[in-house]
Simulated assay, not measured.
Amino acid sequence: MKSHILTPPVAQPGAAPSQAATGRTLNWGVVATGRIVAKVLGDLQALEDANVCAVSSRDVVKARAFADEHGIERAYGSYQELLADAQLDAVYIATPHGQHFEIAMAALAAGKHVVCEKSLTINAAEARTLVNFAGERSLFLMEALWARFTPAFARALAIIESGELGEISWVQADLGFLAQYDPAWRLFDPKAGGGALLDLAVYPLTWAVGALGFPDSVQAVAQLNADGVDTQTAINLGYAAGGHAQLMVTLTGNAPQQARVVGSAGWLATNTPLHNASQLIVHPTDGPARVEEFEAVGENYGYEFREATRCIQQGLTASPTMPWEHSVKTMELFDTIRASVGVRYPNDLLTH
């Protein structure tokens, strides 16, 4: 059975992302200084053809401190100032979800290539507008769904494509942790696109889409808090050919954080966490079980930035591994789920 997304360029089991230059050096700017940026930055800076030369925050003092800590030359007190920097070729956006559309549109309008954290936008209308604008401007745009580029996921796709597991019929995946309520935290802020769905569900969904494609039907139930964001959501995906996927995301407890793919001739599973697995456990029906190991390279974000850099250098506007169509379809699916469980965001009221 063929998988429904393309195998990443770094598809060899355990292969490290090449840090050697594959083309001209790109000058990067980073929008935001939060926890995720601190994790990602080292892997981006490790690429020989990536020069991270600017960072922005709403607080210029915070931006300057972050820049000094990470060896970045220029610090700005707003994303508008950063985007006015004529030396920048590309920007990495890592703000809360609710700001992604505004900043990514501004970056494209300023002529910058864009890598934007997941989820790409709040809703499908924003996603469609964004990708259409990138196409009109002939600029690269990619959702930073780093899990798609890791060796363990690439290897899992290769196993599925090989037919070793037979016809895939069932995927089960979960992701969750205990998040202590704080109304100021983006996870619980509707303006930021808070909730388990937008923050976590894309990772379990990646396994379902990789094995079965996008679904023909979806059902969901969710637990909402007083702020109107989902603290737990269960998703059932149906496929006309007979496959099913069961996905769970939660902010109410520590989940196993594993994925399982079941076929007519065997099954495979990840260890924890499914979005950055270091092991695949493979159980063929007619053969011995085995464990395949994968060592992390840095924080494992280098794979997605190697792909983005390669695409920009080659004049591509979209990554074959993380195509625009998949980002838009994901937001359409999430829109359907949110409508069924009653989650609404302020961005939904805007016309783009």
Rank of each mutant, 00 (worst) to 15 (best):
A245R: 01
L187K: 04
Q279L: 12
L157M: 01
Q313M: 01
A152R: 05
A124K: 06
N132I: 06
Y76T: 01
M331F: 00
H244V: 08
K112N: 00
Q258E: 11
E304Q: 13
T252I: 06
T285N: 13
K112Q: 11
Y76K: 07
R74S: 07
T231M: 00
D286E: 13
E161L: 05
A156V: 04
T33V: 13
L237S: 02
T7I: 08
S278K: 05
H97Y: 02
G342N: 13
S340C: 11
G263L: 09
F140Q: 02
G71T: 14
I72R: 03
S217R: 12
A15T: 09
A104S: 14
S319H: 03
G111V: 13
M105E: 13
L333V: 11
D49F: 02
S78F: 09
Q219G: 15
Y92K: 10
W207F: 13
E299Y: 05
V261R: 03
E102M: 12
T33G: 09
A127K: 09
I312A: 05
P204T: 04
R186C: 10
Q223L: 14
T7M: 07
L268G: 01
A20I: 03
I160W: 01
V37T: 07
L212I: 14
L41Y: 01
A63C: 07
V91Y: 00
A20H: 12
F334T: 14
W267N: 04
D189A: 11
I312M: 02
A67Y: 05
D335C: 07
G193T: 10
E102I: 14
I122K: 01
E48F: 15
Y203P: 11
H352C: 08
R310C: 09
P346G: 13
V171P: 02
G302F: 07
T330I: 09
D49I: 08
P320Y: 04
T252N: 14
A32F: 04
P204M: 08
D230K: 00
L247I: 07
H275C: 04
P204N: 06
G302P: 09
V30I: 08
N27W: 05
A240I: 06
L139K: 11
Q219N: 15
Y345A: 06
A289T: 12
Q12R: 10
V262I: 13
T272L: 12
D227N: 15
F294A: 02
E325A: 15
R58Q: 12
R128S: 09
D182A: 10
L274T: 01
L6M: 11
R290W: 04
K118V: 03
G315C: 10
Q19H: 08
V61K: 15
Y345L: 13
L247S: 08
G98R: 06
E73N: 10
